[in-house]
Computed example of a mutant assay.
Amino acid sequence: MLKDHAKLMQAFAVSGEIIGRKKLQKMIYIAKKITFPFQERFQFHFYGPYSEELTLRIEELCNMGFVEEVKEKKGGYFQYRYNLTESGKEFLSLNQVEMPSLDTCLTDMNVQNARFLELVSTVLYFDNLSKDEVAEKIFTLKSKQKYTDEEIDQAYEYIEDLKEKAKPHH
């Protein structure tokens, strides 16, 4: 029943603290697109791929006491920090989730900034299009972010790098 919740808890377990709702959304989306079996459905929103289901699941995990959400005021806005609680760790130890290499990928994503992860997730969202068409989409949909061609190249390289990391190593 809580299989999908357990997968998300595993994500927190291997990432350590995740700061920011947007970043959390992007990390799970990117992991899902690369290979990991996250079930949440995503739509394209103002800040790139977003999942209502993921938001609800995180809320449930907080209500169950498995994940702790700390809201802090930062300048003019609120920022959320997420951590797995002790009971979350306990639950996970009894409900093993098999996602090899997840730790390597999420730890890597967690040190990137949200702006870059937003770009990477947008590139992945349009992965059925050619690179030129993707760039076109990004310049149109994300004009406010002022992404450069160079950053788009970096995003593509980063995706390849993550796919490499996600491969099972025997």
Rank of each mutant, 00 (worst) to 15 (best):
22 K>I: 09
55 T>W: 06
77 Y>R: 13
71 K>D: 11
85 T>D: 06
70 V>P: 02
110 N>M: 01
119 L>W: 06
68 E>V: 11
121 S>A: 13
144 K>A: 15
58 I>T: 12
148 T>Q: 01
93 S>A: 08
30 I>T: 06
100 P>T: 13
115 R>D: 06
58 I>Q: 07
98 E>G: 13
90 E>F: 00
49 P>D: 03
77 Y>S: 10
114 A>I: 01
119 L>N: 10
65 G>I: 02
94 L>Q: 14
28 I>F: 07
123 V>M: 11
60 E>G: 04
105 C>A: 14
71 K>T: 12
118 E>A: 03
123 V>W: 12
27 M>R: 05
89 K>A: 01
142 K>W: 05
83 N>C: 05
99 M>C: 06
47 Y>K: 02
69 E>N: 09
116 F>P: 07
100 P>N: 13
119 L>M: 12
56 L>F: 11
134 V>Y: 00
32 K>I: 01
133 E>A: 11
120 V>Y: 01
47 Y>L: 13
140 T>D: 14
28 I>A: 08
52 E>T: 12
36 F>Q: 08
143 S>Q: 14
145 Q>L: 15
92 L>Y: 05
48 G>N: 07
99 M>P: 11
49 P>L: 03
47 Y>I: 02
78 F>E: 13
113 N>M: 09
131 K>H: 05
92 L>K: 05
45 H>N: 13
75 G>T: 08
78 F>G: 02
51 S>Q: 06
73 K>H: 09
54 L>I: 04
47 Y>P: 00
103 D>R: 11
23 K>Y: 03
97 V>N: 07
134 V>E: 01
23 K>A: 04
115 R>P: 00
84 L>G: 04
144 K>V: 07
17 E>K: 12
89 K>M: 02
135 A>W: 00
89 K>H: 02
41 R>I: 14
84 L>Y: 01
24 L>C: 06
117 L>G: 10
113 N>D: 15
112 Q>W: 05
46 F>Q: 11
96 Q>P: 06
17 E>P: 14
140 T>W: 03
129 L>R: 02
20 G>H: 06
36 F>G: 10
145 Q>A: 15
92 L>Q: 05
74 K>N: 08
74 K>F: 01
66 F>G: 00
47 Y>E: 08
134 V>C: 08
39 Q>L: 10
45 H>R: 12
20 G>Y: 08
107 T>K: 14
103 D>P: 11
35 T>F: 01
33 K>G: 12
82 Y>F: 14
60 E>P: 01
86 E>M: 02
126 F>A: 12
56 L>V: 08
55 T>G: 06
128 N>Q: 07
80 Y>S: 14
53 E>S: 13
56 L>A: 12
141 L>Y: 10
24 L>K: 04
95 N>T: 05
34 I>K: 02
41 R>H: 13
40 E>K: 00
135 A>V: 04
79 Q>R: 13
116 F>H: 10
41 R>Q: 15
25 Q>L: 04
72 E>G: 01
121 S>I: 07
29 Y>N: 08
52 E>R: 09
25 Q>C: 08
104 T>Q: 12
60 E>N: 06
94 L>P: 00
138 I>P: 00
133 E>K: 09
144 K>D: 15
102 L>Y: 06
122 T>Q: 03
144 K>F: 11
57 R>S: 13
63 N>D: 07
19 I>F: 01
111 V>S: 13
